[in-house]
């Protein structure tokens, strides 16, 4: 997957109501691309089948 450009990240910011300026634009671009890179590489067995369950784990005894 190709890295996002600064212009693309600036557009993401605009969509979120934020006007990203330097030097933060460059650093946010580094961060987003690093996160995309790290997660792109991460495809363990079972990922396609698993559902993102609620935060509360099954052992939790809420309301008991």
């Amino acid at each position: 997957m190709a890295d996002l450009t600064k212009d693309e990240v600036r557009s993401l910011g605009k969509a979120a109501g934020l006007d990203l300026q330097e030097p933060h634009l460059t650093e946010v671009t580094y961060n987003i691309n690093a996160l995309r890179e790290l997660l792109d590489d991460l495809n363990p067995p079972g990922l396609d089948e698993v559902e993102p369950l609620p935060i509360i784990h099954p052992y939790h005894q809420i309301g008991q």
Partner: peptide, 11 residues
Amino acid sequence: RTDFLTGCVVP
């Protein structure tokens, strides 16, 4: 500030 701005635009 950079970290929170990143959180605002994570796809």
